[in-house]
Design a protein around this nucleic acid. Sequence first.
DNA 1: TCTATATGCAATTCACCAAGGCCGAAGAAT
DNA 2: ATTCTTCGGCCTTGGTGAATTGCATATAGA
Lengths: 147, 147
Amino acid sequence: MQFTKAEEYGMQGVLHLADKGKDVVTPLSEISEARDIPEKFLAKIFQSLSRSGILRSHRGVRGGFTLAKPPGEITVKDVLEAIQGPYHLTKCIPDPDSCPRSDSCAMRELLVTAEERLLEVFVKHTLEDVVHMERSMSAPSPEKPNP
Amino acid sequence: MQFTKAEEYGMQGVLHLADKGKDVVTPLSEISEARDIPEKFLAKIFQSLSRSGILRSHRGVRGGFTLAKPPGEITVKDVLEAIQGPYHLTKCIPDPDSCPRSDSCAMRELLVTAEERLLEVFVKHTLEDVVHMERSMSAPSPEKPNP
DNA sequence: TCTATATGCAATTCACCAAGGCCGAAGAAT
DNA sequence: ATTCTTCGGCCTTGGTGAATTGCATATAGA
């Protein structure tokens, strides 16, 4: 019940693209080095993201990847689901028939609620938001701005 | 990123005890059969719960398990954490040093928030609540009460 | 043509989940 | 004291999926 490396790496990679702007073509090698991600692994993750329409790939010399849409139109949930598929705390949430007791299972009700609360956070934030947060966090301390 | 069987079984088992009342001693065999859980597996889970002070075990003839506290004083989170340990979406949340970038990682901020929203649901509900929900769900339909 | 880059498939390694078996320890009933 | 029942601890097994890595192919630019 944890985030996988694929999700971590995928988000980092996409954020790198979002930070550089929508139309800047960036090769895996750069992202891989900048964010410290195994290149072949990132390649596989980015394939899913291309197929999901979140990224666009460009082959050949000076090729690489770009965002397929502006960062403000891609939510964190979009990225995570493209990598891992729909998130569910239990199998019985998307598929109630998998459990004979699901008709009268109070835990299931609770889990549905919990899952909703979790996903709300990921739906409410776009890549643009996260990049802004990232920039403000690594900005120089506001105490002593350089003259 | 899903609930484990141990969590599912553990919750079901504890709910069975909560449903019967705080001081009713119930053997594994009964719970195992009633809720369709492998007995040895449930035994292992209940050991953790005993050590965590959520259950009390009673050996010997007519032995079994009871809740250590009233159902209204045990939260769902208590049970889940006793089984699996503290829940975290990523390793970097409890242990920022595990990631060199965690100082300026916006995703981490987002994940902390998401995790809080999720856990709030589990903290707010006690076993008593869940048992009540369970009972009302399996109650006869209010449309045609039997005369 | 040569090189840089993505694409697709296969294989590997490793950890952990899920379950089951065996025997010992503790306690109640007799 | 004996016996029976039930939990306790340890070890083993099979299976699954995560996290890589490797290799051959396709595509585009210089």
